[in-house]
């Protein structure tokens, strides 16, 4: 976020802290879509995602007075949303068996011939069934990897902001991201080989 946008947002937050309802509504409008998508990717459930949005804003309203501006507002809000989402995830029985998550096999990279992927027809993502397949793949990722992938690659937050939100070190964020990307890449490769994504 640009510096002037951050200042403008801080001004809205200051007004919200003083009980300005209009300012609160601006924050809701600004972030509801992002929090919904975060919740959806985290839980794979539209209903859970809606509940996460609702709970996140309830907490925001309750705690906004405690926001001191030490981090950016969106980092603060994302942390609330992530905590709400992870709590919800913990309360649910796991739908998929988690498997071990490794990084790329560098030996294979240096010794075996690798085939390129064919060109995708990205319009396939308009198909809800295909999006559900993507949801299934991401749901196989243990939450510690899933959260990093969502924040870094889908919400395009920086390594630093992601580390602050998840309260892990930047190098840990990078390692988890590398493994998450590698895992999803391998799963996607299976869809390509099965002819589902071409």
């Amino acid at each position: 976020m640009e510096e002037n946008q951050q200042l403008e947002e801080l001004e809205i937050v200051r007004r919200a802290q003083k009980g300005d309802r209009q300012a609160l509504s601006q924050l809701v409008t600004r972030y509801s879509s992002r929090i919904y998508h975060l919740g959806l990717r985290l839980t794979g459930s539209r209903q859970d995602a809606e509940d996460i949005v609702q709970d996140t804003f309830l907490i925001m309203v309750k705690k906004i007075g405690q926001f001191q501006g030490k981090s950016s507002f969106y980092t603060w809000l994302y942390r609330i949303a992530m905590n709400v989402g992870l709590r919800r995830l913990k309360a649910k029985p796991q739908q998929y068996e988690h498997i071990s998550i490794d990084g790329p096999n560098f030996d294979k990279l240096s010794t075996e011939a690798m085939r390129e992927w064919p060109k995708f027809d990205y319009s396939i993502v308009n198909d809800r069934n295909f999006r559900q397949k993507l949801d299934q793949l991401i749901a196989e990722l243990p939450p510690i990897y899933r959260t990093v992938f969502i924040l870094r690659d889908l919400h395009e937050l920086s390594t630093e902001d992601t580390s602050k939100i998840l309260q892990i070190s930047p190098s840990n964020t990078k390692i988890r991201l590398m493994r998450a990307r590698n895992f999803l890449k391998e799963r996607l490769e299976q869809l390509i080989e099965a002819g589902i994504l071409v």
């Binding site: 959806l40 809606e50 990279l109």
Partner: peptide, 26 residues
């Protein structure tokens, strides 16, 4: 192979990105 590998990772991210944008809000 490294170039191919990086390209695959980029496209993996991209397809999730596009899918996210296609997901309608209630």
């Amino acid at each position: 192979n490294c170039e191919i590998y990086i390209d695959k990772i980029k496209r993996t991210i991209e397809i999730y990105h596009v899918a996210d944008q296609c997901e309608p809000l209630p």
